[in-house]
Simulated assay, not measured.
Amino acid sequence: MTILKLTSNVTRFLPPTRNGWSSPRVFVTASPKLSQSNKEKEVEEACENVKQAAAAVKEGTKVVKKTSEYVKDAAASTAESVNKMTKEVTDKAKDIVTEAAKATTEVIKNRIVNK
């Protein structure tokens, strides 16, 4: 917009062309200074690096989440197995103690009766 306004204002001060078909046009552009373009490149590179770092952090977060879920599942499975084995051992121990108590009772009964 600024260039168009500048062009229309400049054409008022220029003499008309001979054939009258077109008026001369003046375009003004500003080239960036070398230091500005370098700074822009640095900013673009920094932005790209930040985007890459953010993507890496996001990917790392996904991996950590998957790993923690795996560990959680493994711990739950292990706890379930330990509980099951503990129950089996407890039941067997009860059976053994009950059988031993019965056998001991029988032995004591037999000794008392045989006396």
Results as ranks from 00 to 15, higher is better:
52 Q>S: 06
63 V>D: 08
31 S>T: 08
35 S>T: 08
66 K>P: 04
47 C>S: 15
34 L>D: 15
69 E>Y: 07
58 K>N: 00
63 V>I: 14
51 K>P: 03
35 S>P: 00
33 K>L: 13
65 K>F: 05
32 P>L: 15
53 A>C: 07
36 Q>G: 06
52 Q>E: 14
48 E>L: 11
39 K>F: 07
49 N>E: 13
73 D>G: 06
58 K>C: 00
63 V>E: 11
46 A>S: 11
40 E>T: 02
72 K>E: 07
68 S>I: 11
47 C>N: 14
40 E>Q: 04
79 A>N: 08
41 K>Q: 11
47 C>W: 10
44 E>N: 12
76 A>Y: 08
72 K>M: 03
71 V>R: 02
39 K>E: 09
55 A>L: 02
58 K>A: 05
48 E>R: 08
67 T>Q: 13
51 K>A: 15
75 A>H: 11
51 K>F: 08
71 V>E: 02
62 K>S: 07
78 T>N: 09
57 V>H: 01
31 S>N: 07
41 K>R: 15
56 A>C: 07
47 C>A: 15
62 K>F: 01
65 K>H: 12
51 K>H: 12
63 V>F: 06
59 E>N: 07
51 K>M: 13
58 K>S: 03
51 K>V: 07
65 K>N: 09
71 V>W: 00
67 T>K: 09
69 E>F: 03
44 E>R: 10
64 V>K: 04
46 A>E: 06
69 E>I: 04
33 K>S: 13
50 V>R: 15
52 Q>G: 00
46 A>K: 11
50 V>N: 14
64 V>G: 01
73 D>C: 02
76 A>G: 05
62 K>Q: 07
35 S>R: 04
79 A>C: 08
44 E>K: 10
33 K>V: 05
55 A>S: 03
68 S>P: 04
32 P>T: 08
35 S>L: 07
56 A>S: 10
40 E>M: 00
73 D>S: 11
42 E>H: 03
60 G>M: 01
64 V>P: 01
75 A>R: 09
70 Y>V: 13
38 N>S: 13
65 K>P: 01
70 Y>F: 15
60 G>S: 01
31 S>K: 14
74 A>F: 01
72 K>Y: 05
31 S>D: 10
34 L>N: 15
49 N>V: 02
42 E>G: 00
49 N>I: 02
73 D>F: 02
72 K>R: 05
